[in-house]
Amino acid sequence: MKSAVTTVVAAADAAGRFPSMSDIEAVKGSFDRASSRMQAAEKLAAGIDKVTADAVDAVYGKGTYEQANKDKCARDIHHYLRLINYCLVTGGTGPLDEWGIAGMREVIRAQVLPTVAYIEAFTHIRDRVCVPRDMDEQAAAEFKGLLDYLINALA
């Protein structure tokens, strides 16, 4: 699982050397950012159902759709937000890459799903993050960065 620390350790191991000062600086840098990442993860975990519902409403608008359809959309958005929560905790994109993005394109194509709708949902979530109501500025930057990463993967 790729995270801030494992990336550094894997590189050191590939070279067969002990953690060097620059490795340790890199790890320390990620620890310094960890508190804002964890704040973002905590707030997202607390509000994940609300955020999901809000995004689904924004995507479907006022039209009438089958509830089953909307439920599936909510499930998927909830899933991706959960992975973003994990990425915030690890400090790397490992969870999204391994459990969210790998194979995503094939699955979406096979089921003829509109990726535009997901992009719309995540863009809505990204634009709705309010500083300092939801989280502080650095936390919001980490969260938005990961949302952008996912949007780029879907696009």
Binding site: M1, V9, A45, N85, Y86, V89, W99
Partner: peptide, 18 residues
Amino acid sequence: DAFSRAVVAADAKGSPIG
């Protein structure tokens, strides 16, 4: 690492890390 260990445990339950 300590972080991804927590993530793997949370994923097994399907819940976000709170």
